[in-house]
Design a protein around this nucleic acid. Structure first.
Length: 291
DNA sequence: ACCGCACCCTGAGCGC
DNA sequence: TGCGCTCAGGGTGCGG
């Protein structure tokens, strides 16, 4: 599931295929929840434009266009943004995979889950935005326009500090885990990295935010930054659907200490990793290493 | 202001 | 070519 490291990896790898190229054609699936800007309007707005830059804001990608407008993208849970020519089994359904021989790596062609296809005036590789569950988002912003989604984002999680977490957690009864998922507190952390950061900081995810000490807030911030940076170095986590724009898998999933390891031994102390639902999110921790 | 929860969506996995 | 159920979760919105 794309969180900050996966979105940042996507940004770095897709930027060369986007920035400086003239958009010639825009193909979409039918109108849906996915398109905050209706497909018809999106096509009119994007045709003929040149992308001049691509930045990341929390888990959002924001493309700037040559007329001053901007295109906001969110990968949701299963979003995949990639270039034509990439091959990855993650781009295929399990049933398609099952019919393949191990050595086969068929080139991707747009399917029913490919909601946005950008083609370019140079006739080079197209850019695809695929999203099975359609929790992703596409929104066109007029020049000078912003959006509440962006305005309420807190500071980027890569710059997390103990001060920010401490200040936000005072008087809050919610679990510290839930606070870390709140994008208005810190933008970019999601379920995997919240669990991992809390493990490294030695703080149980269920602990009420208001009861987390300043020293613990400092540790959580430091560990969150560390784990996010390390994940970016490894190309992010490819646990279910995530794949980089060039078809490569990230490898951070191999370095997970707790996430999706319920019942397995803690890599530090050997006791069983616990699992519980907190704030409607699956949460993982070690009872001995975290208190 | 805060908090818990339903909902958006689809495919995988599982029990029977 | 089985069917029905549960789960995965980022973000939004609503009721208490």
């Amino acid at each position: 599931m794309p969180e900050l490291p996966e979105v940042e990896t996507t940004r770095r790898k897709i930027a060369p295929a986007l920035v400086g190229r003239v958009i010639a054609g825009v193909a979409t699936t039918k109108p849906s929840y996915f398109f905050l800007t209706p497909p018809g309007e999106l096509k009119r707005r994007l045709a003929g434009r040149t992308c001049t830059g691509l930045q990341r804001l929390g888990k959002y990608l924001l493309a700037t266009l040559d007329d001053g407008s901007r295109l906001l993208l969110h990968l949701g849970m299963t979003g995949q943004l990639f270039t034509e020519g990439s091959t990855s089994l993650r781009l295929l359904s399990a049933t398609s995979r099952a019919t393949l021989r191990p050595e086969q790596q068929p080139e991707f062609s747009p399917d029913k889950h490919t909601h946005l296809v950008l083609s370019f005036a140079d006739n080079g590789p197209r850019v695809f935005f695929r999203d099975t569950r359609k929790f992703g988002k596409v929104l066109w912003l007029a020049p000078g326009a912003s959006d509440p989604r962006l305005q309420k984002l807190g500071p980027d999680a890569l710059g997390a500090t103990g001060d920010v977490i401490f200040a936000a957690s005072r008087g809050r009864r919610v679990a510290i885990k839930s606070l870390l998922l709140d994008q208005s507190v810190l933008a970019g952390a999601g379920n995997i990295y919240a669990d991992e950061a809390l493990f490294h900081a030695g703080v149980r995810p269920k602990r009420a935010a208001s009861k987390v000490t300043r020293a613990q807030c400092e540790r959580i911030a430091a560990e969150l930054v560390k784990v996010l940076k390390r994940s970016i170095e490894t190309g992010g986590s490819s646990i279910s659907d995530y794949v980089a724009p060039d078809g490569q898998d990230g490898t951070f999933q191999d370095e997970r200490m707790v996430y999706a390891r319920a019942g397995e031994p803690c890599k530090v102390c050997g006791s069983k990793i616990r699992r519980a639902v907190i704030g409607q999110r699956s949460t993982h921790w070690c009872n001995r290493c975290q208190s």
